[in-house]
Structure formats: C-alpha cells, structure tokens
Design a protein around this nucleic acid. Structure first.
Length: 367
DNA sequence: CACGCGTGGCA
DNA sequence: TTGCCAAGCGT
C-alpha cells in the first residue's frame, strides 16, 4: 500500500471528509428549521410522543399522488371507523372501497385491505420495521417502504418522493431528467441523511419541498439551504427537476343509462376489480372510445326501456384522457328484475355507495 | 422503462 | 380556460 501523498497533510482536508462535514451541516440546518416550522398533521405524533405505524402507513398510502388537504377528512373517517390494522383487516373490502370513494386511484384501496390482511395474518398485527419487510406488502413500493421505516421505526432509510426529488435536483442542479435521475437522487439523500433523527429528517425534507421548495415560485429566502443551493445561485430553481413533457390523451365519448325503478331504486353494476375505476360502482353505460357515436348509443342500453336523452352531457378528466358522457334516463316498473351482472340500490343508498366522482356527476345530471 | 391509474386546486 | 400538478404503485 503506497503512503499518502504529501499534499494530503496540508490544511486542506481530504475531499471525502469535507463532503461529510457539509452533509452534517445540511442535516443540522434542516432539522433546526423543521423544529421551528414543521407542519402539524393529524397523522404525525407530537414531538416526543409514540408513533403509531398503522397511522403512518395509512397516511402514506392516502398521500400517494394526493394532496394533504384532500387526505384530511378521509384519514379522519378511516381512523375513526378502523382504529387498528386488525380492525381494518376484519372489514369487508367492499366497505373499504365505499369509504375510499372520491379519493381516487382505487387500486390503493384494494391493496390497502390486502396489506391489512397480510399484516394481521402473517405478521401478528405488527408492521415489519425494516424496508425489506415492508417492501413486499401490497401497495408498498420503494418510497412508502422507506417512509414507514424512517417515520414509524426511525430507520435511516433514504426517503425519496416528489418533494425530495425537487429539493435535491435544485440543491445540486442535477441536469439528468426524471426518472433516470432517481438513483443519483437516492444516493445523495443517503449521503445527507441524519442517522440520529431519520424520521424527522425524512419529514423535514418533505415539508421543505411542500412549503418552501415548491414547484412554482419557491420561497428561497426562507430556505435553510439557500446558501449552498446550486440552482438558486444560477437563478434557475424553477426549472428543476428536469423531466420530459407529458402528453394528454384524446377525448373519449360514451353514454350512461340512468334507470330509476318506480319503487325508488337505481340500476348499478360493479366494475371489474382491475383497471380503470377497478372494483367501483358505476351506472350502466357504453364503452368509452374516441370514435363513439352518440346516435348509436341506444343500442347499448342495459334494458329495453324508453330512454330519453337528457340535454347537455357530463365531462370528466382522468389522468390520461378527458371523457364526455351522454346521459340517458328511463323509468322501470316497481319490482323489475335487474339484468345479469347488475343490481338495484335504493336512492338512499347512493350516498354510501362506492361511486367514483365521474359517476356522481352522472347521477347529479340525471336526478 | 413506459404506461395506466383519479381527483380537486391552482395560476 | 387549459394545463399542471400532489407524500407512487403495479405491470
């Protein structure tokens, strides 16, 4: 082994050491900021109080691609109705779907219940405490496994969500586009991570991204890392992270058939468990396609009734395509049987049914 | 890796 | 108004 070159004994410390010192400084500054400005959120334990992994997990699933504001009332409803993971596991999945209705990305609700069952039956009602154990559970991917390990169990996991991607790509002015930059970002977070307070560090990074290092008009003058942020130095903070532009889908059209029975029942059916709005309740309708012709819609009616085309239409925008539905209405005699694969619900049951938002728009349009 | 998968809020 | 987005996951 060769001896160190003489230059390493000068006042300048080795590069690796300097970087480690800088990372410690970053973490300390961030945690000091967090201690003053942390958000008070229903799923967060108060400082010093015990963390409930069930509440951490539930909130993390709900927060996937969903705003804090939207999650609030759902989190309250779920924890009131199901205070523990075992209570949730004992509930029929249909009840979970109904309670999730309106929050979007419905495979999360199905996976939520599957995960609760797995934890209750295979893990004795306790969540695994490390990333590897969490990673394989339904609905738990790289981000969520790391977040639960860090926040609920104080494991030094590198937690990388959309907020952290934005913070780190700005801090280092990373030019690589997402998602290709993901491994570099994760490595950088692992380097910055404060192993004495991993849970707080993870939440601090996300709070920083959510309140200071925002996508538009970031409040750089309030940022604990402003002095060392490469993007801020260049004045280009709003241009990060780099990512390829998304394309919006073509408009699709279709028809919905609202059938109300004389004894105040509504005709509905359940969508297949996978795919768009999987497992959710819907008003019977046509296929949705770009070349759908409303003139031919009546051929797809669920029952041989005198349907009236209602004026106007229902518009809705999904992640990958906009939708426009023509709405037809008909009355059926009391006691009429439902066609195969369909069922009747009372009008009073509409509110508690697992209707996605687009279907509530259809019902509101017709009733 | 690219795509499918909801919704409501914001400029 | 239209586009973009907000604590991703599964395939």
């Amino acid at each position: 082994m060769a001896s160190r070159p003489v230059t390493s004994t000068t006042l300048t410390r080795p590069k690796q050491r300097r970087e480690a010192d800088a990372s410690r400084h970053h973490a300390a500054a961030l945690l000091a900021w967090y201690d003053r400005h942390r958000r008070r959120l229903a799923w967060r334990a108060l400082p010093g109080a015990a963390v409930d992994p069930y509440r951490v997990w539930l909130s993390e699933i709900m927060l996937q691609q969903t705003t804090v504001k939207a999650v609030g009332p759902y989190f309250a409803r779920f924890t009131e109705r199901w205070p523990t993971v075992e209570a949730l596991a004992r509930s029929p999945v249909e009840e979970v779907m109904k309670t999730w209705a309106g929050l979007g990305y419905y495979s999360r609700a199905r996976n939520l219940h599957a995960c609760a069952l797995a934890v209750a039956e295979r893990h004795g009602g306790r969540f695994p405490s490390d990333v590897e154990g969490l990673r394989g559970l339904p609905g738990i991917g790289d981000y969520t496994a790391s977040a639960i390990a860090a926040i609920a169990f104080d494991r030094p996991a590198a937690v990388v969500d959309g907020n952290v991607e934005r913070v780190v790509t700005r801090l280092d002015a990373i030019e690589t586009e997402l998602p290709a930059a993901k491994p570099a970002i994760k490595a950088r977070v692992a380097e910055l991570l404060d192993s004495t307070r991993p849970g707080d560090f993870a939440q601090a990074m996300m709070d920083l991204g959510a309140t200071i290092c925002t996508p538009k008009r970031p409040a750089c003058s309030l940022c604990p890392w402003q002095a060392s942020c490469a993007a801020r130095k260049a004045g280009t903070q709003e241009t990060y992270p780099r990512k390829a532009p998304k394309t919006t889908g073509r408009l699709r059209r279709g028809a919905a058939f609202v059938v109300v029975r004389a004894d105040r029942h509504l005709l509905v059916r359940t969508r297949p468990p996978k795919g768009l709005l999987g497992g959710m309740t819907e008003i019977p309708g046509s296929v949705w396609s770009a070349d759908f012709a409303v003139a031919a819609a009546r051929a797809e009616a669920p029952m041989p009734l005198a349907f009236t085309r209602l004026p106007g239409s229902v518009s809705h925008v999904f992640t990958h395509f906009p939708l426009e539905l023509a709405v037809f209405h008909a009355s059926a005699p009391a006691g009429a049987p439902a066609p195969a694969g369909m069922r009747w619900i009372t009008l009073d049951e509409i509110a508690g049914e697992a209707f996605p938002t687009v279907m509530r728009k259809v019902i509101a349009h017709a009733l």
